[in-house]
Nucleic acid binder design. Structure first.
Lengths: 155, 155
DNA sequence: TATTGTTATACTCTATAACTATA
DNA sequence: TATAGTTATAGAGTATAACAATA
């Protein structure tokens, strides 16, 4: 009710959520570009890494399941999986009862690739998280990642 | 030193930052896809929106300045700016003293486009922030956006 | 009919390389 | 020489449309 409520960032009570969304959009773009640049030496792209990472966490899955999980079209997931298969990181096996479906699973090489990625402690983001945030700020970022992950995963 | 230190997520004290980075990468991909899908009706792409938004916040700038700010190559920024100019949302004027440079600024139409965007209160992310987080969680997310923005903007 | 997956095609974003104009 | 910007080309990621095989 105070006159300065027109400000874009309201200090307390009711932050302007459209403004927050806009900042999130900008952040998302920046993060994508920096993370992509940072993981260039990996030999795999970000989309491919996301699929490998999901296969590690949740086990084998079909194209359509993976597409839904990553929120892309089955055709797009098909392209990503074809690249991963060509690189020998995933393998496809027939579904036991439904011959339309293909089950994608990690190969041993794919599993090693994930382990490698986890050992990369010196990417810019890891350094930045370690060196430019204090403990409280790190905790804030970590919790926010969980919260936003929850929002994007649900319907 | 305890035996369970092999776990990927260490509960307290020293979170596995490579794990955090990996989650951030996954989140970034999800956010990008959902935000892009949500802003499809806008008539402008995410990159274009980022440039307009920066011109609003910081005023006119050259191609190279915008490229540095958004962390893309000048050629990529050139393409984005060409699309924005074609759409009538930005205009270019000669630099007063250096004839190599072009100053990009918002047109009235570009300014209106930004205002429109701010009025879109019903995008999925705004709804989700409003309806699926409590006040404390929202504050965490908002602070984390600031923190991560600081990390990506600096060198 | 509905679902799974593929092929064909196109657009956006970004990159590298090579160039012109100007400083 | 160095910087600002452009043009040409390529690759990744995604989409829609049309299709085949299977349920």
């Amino acid at each position: 009710m105070r006159p300065q409520d027109q400000q874009t960032t309201v200090s307390a009570g009711q932050p302007d959520l459209a403004e927050v969304a806009s900042k999130l959009r900008a952040l998302s773009g920046q993060l994508t570009r920096r993370l992509r640049a940072a993981s260039e030496g990996d030999g795999i792209t970000m989309s491919q890494a996301a699929v490998l990472s999901r296969l590690v966490r949740k086990g084998p899955a079909t194209t359509v399941e993976l597409a839904r999980a990553e929120r892309v079209r089955p055709q797009s997931m098909g392209a990503t999986l074809a690249a991963l298969e060509e690189a020998g990181l995933v393998q496809r096996s027939p579904h036991p009862s439904d011959r339309r479906q293909m089950i994608m699973s990690l190969t041993e090489q794919g599993r090693r690739k994930i382990e490698e990625g986890r050992r990369i402690k010196e990417s810019w983001i890891v350094q930045a998280l370690r060196d430019r945030l204090d403990d409280r700020e790190r905790a804030v970022v970590i919790e926010a990642i969980e919260l936003l992950g929850r929002l994007t995963e649900e319907d």
